[in-house]
Design a protein around this nucleic acid. Structure first.
Lengths: 343, 343
DNA sequence: TTGTACGCGTTATCAA
DNA sequence: TTGATAACGCGTACAA
């Protein structure tokens, strides 16, 4: 009753029969080669290659109780601009997982509750061994719920608001260090009235980035009070924010995102100050748009984050205790010369 | 020797024992409920719910010979701008797959050969039932190679250059119809010298989009020859192309992408014609940047594409012959008023 | 309506 | 070094 012409797959048994050996020998050639005689090993290897045999993932998973898969929620692309960072992370994670023999299984959800529920379902059906959470927000409820349900997980992002009490593994990028580097650079350029354009308090990531700016400019009397918060992470909000900051006398601006920075640049474009670069703007995330625009920006090492995250995850999965289960990675500032849509 | 405290999962047997029924009964409740007594069914359902039991994906896959997974290559994010379309497609595909009880498994590769090889490996190990190809290029070699290796697949994108001889299932968006709609609109606005800004011949997608423009403006003497090709899909290339087109007398421009369109707008910004919108520009893909900028653009129905693609795929997988195995979806033009970084 | 038996492909254990 | 046996969890034909 089965449908498509799915030809019989080679199996351990079929390979073994073909060679007149036991299937255990074939299995050993794959999983424990040192224990099998070189001559036999060669013969088996040749047969495996000839048949294009690959061990059945299902059979293996059933036996080993490991699916070799990682669950990750794919967020809806809100903003093609800042989404670029998550894009890079997704790609890095998929690549690193593949390198380690794991697969990345995507899921979609409307909210955190849906995400947790689906991750739990996947874990209970042994479809995934592990979950990766991203976009950790302030007082995120997901870690606690996954823990309750015994679903192993790691997070890309700190457990904001619960850092002291959380003991799960996480990797994050030190946003404060990034904005501090940006502000320092602007100071070196001679600016004393350096503004910050970000989001309202309470967002974890946003507060962190503001803190880095403030730590660097607090001793500059001119920079006090030059912090503006806008609601949306959107260029149009950046235009408004930059307008306010300039009105208050800012001569340079650190932004919490490239979206906002792009808007800020747009502001200066509109008022005709672009070429003069009288008000340097630094963005955050080093997105392709920043590269294209010549916008200086803080670059997050998401590739490293993916590698570290999986290292932590598999250490825990192996029952070992990882060194430094919480890791803060250093971003770096990419300095560029602003130019209209050039590379 | 196993590591983490993986508590014993409930199984058909454990649920059955707990209730004092046979495991077959439990299985029937899940797969063939009508055959079991309502009273028993209720008891079993309750126990299942209480235990949080989910059938093991591995056991099921082993028995049914179906992994319930789909393989898809995740391309490296080249350009945060146009990548947005693939982002939407990816999300839609993940969502629709999930709705149908399937999972989306990601893979990464450096090139087409690597992609095919990994897909083949995944299929041979019964990790996926099916592959989805995207970004089909001119004379794409992947379909033939997957076919040789008996890997079922569908493609998002036409088999450019081999449309007549290919019989696999595909879904694509009618790019020519999109640029035709854009050009028609510009004609309605009174323009007679409508330019096209795209890529060199031979790219399938690019040729298609150029063809739609040309079909619409061919009878306008003023528009002949107003086609410019640039090498990169990048705003900076758009600046150059737009400059050329305007020099040749174009009064309106249809672009092959939002990236190019953004550059074209940048050109007019630079020369100070933005507010006047003397040279309307239409982009392609309706990316978030287009929305943010107020750029008119051609919107691709990728959500529908994902739905259609999986419908075709599963029809074939079920051994049936799908109605219309090749489908061309209509895009639509989104008309916007250009404004500097506003919504 | 329920229970029994078998096989899906793999790996671990142990005997030869 | 190699081979036989058991078990992982599930679905299904068949018998009760």
């Amino acid at each position: 009753m089965d449908a498509v012409n799915r030809q019989a797959r080679p199996t351990l048994v079929s390979i073994a029969q073909e060679l007149g050996v036991s299937r255990q020998t074939v299995s050993n050639v794959l999983n424990n080669p040192s224990v099998v005689h070189p001559r036999t090993r060669e013969r088996v290897d040749a047969a495996i290659k000839k048949a294009g045999y690959r061990p059945s993932a299902a059979g293996k998973a059933l036996r080993t109780q490991r699916s070799m898969a990682i669950g990750l929620r794919l967020y809806r692309a809100v903003d093609g601009i800042n989404g670029a960072v998550m894009d890079r992370f997704l790609h890095s994670l998929a690549e690193e997982a593949q390198r380690l023999g794991y697969q990345l299984t995507l899921l979609t959800a409307d909210d955190a509750a849906g995400e947790v529920e689906k991750l739990e379902t996947l874990y209970r059906s042994a479809s995934i061994d592990l979950a990766v959470l991203t976009d950790t927000g302030m007082d995120d409820t997901r870690p606690a719920r996954l823990r309750e349900n015994q679903v192993p997980f790691v997070t890309f992002g700190r457990p904001w608001g619960r850092i002291a009490t959380s003991d799960h593994c996480w990797v994050d990028v030190d946003g404060a260090a990034g904005t501090a580097a940006a502000a320092s650079w602007l100071r070196e350029l001679g600016h004393e009235r350096i503004g910050f354009l970000g989001w309202p308090e309470g967002s974890g990531v946003g507060d962190d980035r503001r803190a880095g700016w403030w730590a660097t400019v607090a001793d500059l009397p001119g920079s006090a009070g030059l912090s503006v918060a806008v609601l949306d992470d959107h260029p149009s909000a950046g235009v408004e924010g930059a307008t306010q900051l300039v009105a208050r006398g800012a001569t340079a601006i650190v932004c919490a995102s490239d979206s906002l920075a792009l808007g800020a640049i747009g502001h200066f474009r509109t008022v005709g100050r672009l070429g003069e670069a009288e008000v340097p703007v630094v963005g955050f995330d080093d997105t392709p748009v920043a590269r294209a625009t010549g916008l200086s920006s803080v670059h997050q090492p998401v590739e490293q984050a993916a590698v570290d995250l999986l290292e932590l995850a598999f250490t825990v999965l192996d029952g070992k205790t990882p060194a430094r289960p919480q890791r803060l990675l250093e971003p770096h500032l990419v300095q560029r010369r602003l130019q209209p849509f050039a590379r």
